[in-house]
Design a binder for these strands. Structure first.
Lengths: 225, 225
DNA sequence: CTAATCGGTTAACACACGTTAACACTGGTT
DNA sequence: AACCAGTGTTAACGTGTGTTAACCGATTAG
């Protein structure tokens, strides 16, 4: 069995080394990066299963890094390491979709417990996650949308957009929220692009007439069925 | 659109605030209480649809609070937040009957998923109940108004205005109340705008002559049939 | 009776969103 | 290198929604 890859971004070498070694004794493979930029490169090379990110780092801080990686993969578990117990930091970490956070100083036991929790949790989700909307079945990880035995492959963007619509079924899904989450910003062009994808999804969902993507002018979209 | 009320009892202010804000971005209304006693009072004032209770709290712990509220309402869904050190078997007794528990630390995504699950299960969700007014059927979430098999799609504003009119059928619906609720203020321009929408609704409701939107000068409107 | 106020109605308007197609970029194949 | 298919972005144009304006009649206070 191959070891589980963990990306660790920590600028303080001594602390980084300690964490790395501790985790390696628990049979994880650890890629230690000394700043956010290197971490992003390493992420793309190594496709780790989990991220441990220091919030305060030179070049690129942990939150910014997390936002960027979230546009590529919004299910990968992230643990933030925050220096101060500042509430504001923590709040930001959650709104990015970060899964967990640890206040420094923390014990190794604590970190390991949380890593194991997150890994278990995502495994469970991966095995059990086909979503249902009307007569459609949607396999998010595979990006396959099925109705009456007929399947169509969705693109990455289509799948993620649909995923969030389904997760917020019958509620208004905020435009700028989803733009920031999937596009990384909510400027004019991204908004235009999103409109195009809404059109595409409407077409792909039209085989069940009870399903509609309703626009709420100025706020966002509501998937109803 | 009335938001779903959630009562959140959490004594640690930082965490409480994070959860509250996260839930509010998902369009829930959250009442944050810092201990069990305040939570009980708030429960009686606000009649929330769902409870999220920290188990360890000063004044009154989550389990005791839950027992008391259960005597008043034995179907309301409750989610317990438990610290990781707490023993599993205590918790397991409460997993029956629409309840759930989350071990700290947990991710916001997870909490939101469970909230939606419980709301779906207990059918509190404000979904496809179709309202009836005269010979018309009105599907509020889909914003569709139907008579004699003919359907017309309403806009967001039209739908919400009609919703409140129907909810207050045969009663006077206060102008400034509805203006504040839908427009966010009750200034001159919003009032003018509302007049326009009343006109539009009158047109769309004229296929059943028994239905009328009557103006009560200086007070508001009354939908009668 | 007259003026002031409130609401009714229609139309003009600004802008958010819808739709289609052209375009640019990527990665794979020959 | 040249080509291709797939994906997402940009552009151009069209449509729909909500706001504002203008004009009107109805009601009521003075």
């Amino acid at each position: 069995m191959s070891k589980i890859n963990i990306l660790l971004a920590e600028d303080e070498p001594a602390l980084g080394q300690i964490i790395k070694e501790s985790l390696e004794t628990r049979d994880f493979k650890v890629h230690l990066c000394e700043n956010g930029e290197i971490a992003l490169e390493t992420y793309q090379k190594e496709s780790p299963e989990l991220l441990v990110l220091d919030v305060m780092m030179p070049k690129k801080d942990g939150f910014t890094l997390a936002k960027e990686i979230r546009t590529l993969d919004d299910s990968i578990p992230i643990i933030f390491l925050t220096a101060k117990s500042q509430t504001q930091d923590v709040v930001e970490g959650f709104t990015i979709g970060g899964n967990d956070y640890l206040k420094k100083p923390f014990s190794m036991e604590e970190l390991i417990v949380r890593i194991n929790n997150l890994l278990n949790r995502t495994k469970i989700q991966k095995t059990s996650d086909t979503l249902t909307i009307g007569n459609y079945k949607f396999d998010f990880p595979k990006q396959v949308l099925t109705i009456d035995g007929e399947s169509q492959q969705l693109t990455h963007r289509e799948a993620h957009l649909l995923f969030h619509l389904i997760k917020n079924k019958n509620q208004v899904l905020d435009r700028s929220l989803i733009l920031n989450k999937l596009w990384g910003n909510d400027d004019f062009f991204s908004a235009r692009s999103m409109d195009v994808f809404i059109t595409k999804l409407r077409k792909k969902l039209q085989k069940d007439e009870s399903i509609q993507i309703i626009n709420v002018r100025g706020f966002g979209y509501k998937l109803v069925n």
